[in-house]
């Protein structure tokens, strides 16, 4: 049996019809065209699929699409406003917090979560709280710098 769900996706009311065994990330990518949310491992390890559900970072490869009903979802596509990058995106750009870029959407969504939980996180806190995000280029140094500076910029806004 299919279910018709309604949720807010990057500020827009969205309706979709899904089967219960459909994953949230597959709905977003394959059906709604939001391919900014990546699938790295598909086993809840790598964090590339991280998005915000009701403001909190979660792994969308480990959520059923039908569970999106009634929620507010923000993906990487929903961060920039009127062409201006979100402060965390701008910090990743400024500090070159990426190499191949595959993990970057998840890193940015997690980084915003870190900044929301800790106004001025130190490097040890950032590294600990990045446990759920894997960068296979091992470019963590600049990612940590970018999140530290992005958190500062978010606090100033």
């Amino acid at each position: 049996m299919t279910h018709t769900i309604t949720f807010t996706l990057n500020g827009e009311q969205t309706t979709a019809t899904v089967t219960p065994n459909h994953l949230a990330v597959d709905l977003l990518r394959d059906d709604l065209g939001k391919t900014g949310t990546h699938v790295g491992c598909d086993t809840s390890q790598c964090g590339a699929c991280t998005l915000h559900l009701n403001g909190e970072p979660i792994k969308s490869c480990t959520l059923l699409a039908v569970q999106l009903d009634g929620t507010e979802i923000t993906t990487i596509e929903g961060l920039a406003k009127n062409g201006d990058l979100h402060p965390m995106q701008a910090a990743f750009k400024e500090h070159h917090g990426l190499q191949c870029g595959f993990c970057t959407p998840g890193m940015i969504m997690s980084g915003i979560g870190i900044a929301q939980r800790n106004t001025t996180p130190d490097d040890a806190t950032i590294r600990h709280e990045l446990e759920g995000n894997i960068c296979r280029c091992t470019g963590y140094q600049n990612i940590v710098t970018a999140i530290r500076e992005g958190a500062k910029a978010m606090a100033e806004v």
Binding site: L53, P57, I58, T62, L63, I114
Partner: peptide
């Protein structure tokens, strides 16, 4: 786990 796991 990690922060995303702890949120669920």
């Amino acid at each position: 786990g990690d922060p995303m796991v702890r949120n669920r």
